[in-house]
């Protein structure tokens, strides 16, 4: 067994054991944001597209899944799927518009369209406005397993995360993923090699949006409500921060980044109050100025240097 596979298995074992040591709801929150960040990283880290509007997909899925389960009486797993599908569809619409521009314009377009989605949610009757959509029942998985128990729900969330993580891992290492990396590295060259770059970008965008939606819908299920916070631009910024802090363009970076940020927010919330935003902003500034490879990026660079030094001897 390769060293890498062993490391992933060890992480999985950690994931299975963790709820016995840490409050399960906190770990579930970390898993949801980790999935969100991994999905985002597929776009920023592997396609080179900075979307500043991913909260729209996170929030849309939360609302749609919540409404499907509470308002239409969908079973839990169908509700989650409905939310994911809605986000993927929204991702298709936003993506088709945004990929017409590149670089910073791409970031501004996604941000503006996400703000539009936010305003729609603010005014639409089914979202409950400022109060949000509350009291969504967790229901039973496949009609059998009672998800209102935190531990049952935890393993369901872990399974969703592992599945999505595997999907992202496979995507990155597939021929499709290599074309995405080629686009990130040198777009004109990818075009001249005959790749339909727009189609690849759009597909990556839809995939990223759909998986972000899955994360949002799952988070809604954990907390039993969907609110405007999920769709606010602060959430878009947070997922960027998680990805950069952990290391963009690394497979595990977003997981590390989101665990750090969520834990930090959880620890700081009652200690410093609204200064949390200031601290998040400072981490952002420090990351951009001095720490662009992120935690995982720095560790793997260090590791490579050590290997290199050993080989030279």
């Amino acid at each position: 067994m390769s060293r890498q596979a062993f490391a992933y298995l060890a992480l999985l074992a950690l994931g299975i054991a963790l709820p016995f040591f840490v409050y399960p709801v906190l770990v579930m929150k970390v898993l949801c944001f980790a999935l969100f960040a991994c999905a985002f990283n597929l776009l920023l880290g592997y396609t080179g597209l900075l979307s500043f509007g991913h909260a729209a997909f996170f929030g849309t899925a939360a609302y749609v899944a919540g409404y499907a389960i509470k308002g239409w009486g969908f079973p839990t797993e169908l509700g989650l799927l409905a939310g994911t599908a809605a986000s993927a569809f929204l991702g298709w619409a936003v993506g088709s518009l945004a990929i017409r521009r590149t670089g910073i314009y791409f970031a501004m377009v996604t941000l503006a369209l996400a703000q539009m989605v936010y305003f729609i949610f603010l005014q639409a009757p089914f979202t409950g406005g400022e109060d949000g959509l509350q009291g969504v029942p967790r229901g039973r998985l496949l009609g059998l397993i009672d998800l209102s128990r935190d531990l049952n729900l935890y393993y369901f969330v872990l399974a969703i995360f592992v599945f999505a993580f595997w999907l992202i891992y496979r995507t990155i290492h597939s021929p499709f993923g290599h074309v995405l990396t080629a686009i990130r590295e040198n777009e004109p060259r990818a075009i001249s090699l005959g790749y339909d770059v727009a189609k690849y970008k759009l597909l990556a965008f839809v995939l990223s949006a759909g998986l972000s939606g899955l994360a949002g819908a799952t988070k809604m299920l954990v907390f039993k409500f969907a609110t405007l916070t999920d769709a606010h631009w602060h959430a878009s910024g947070e997922v960027v921060l998680m990805t950069i802090l952990g290391g963009m363009g690394t497979v595990l970076g977003p997981v590390v980044g989101s665990s750090t940020i969520v834990t930090l927010q959880n620890e700081l919330a009652d200690k410093v109050g609204s200064l949390v935003t200031v601290i998040m902003g400072m981490i952002f500034v420090v990351c951009v100025l001095a720490f662009r490879r992120g935690i995982v990026g720095e560790i793997s660079a260090l590791y490579k240097r050590m290997i290199g030094a050993r080989n030279e001897q």
Partner: peptide, 16 residues
Amino acid sequence: LYGLLLTFGLALVIEG
């Protein structure tokens, strides 16, 4: 893009 990200962080700091 790094300029956008840095100034985003600054915006959070000032606003916060």
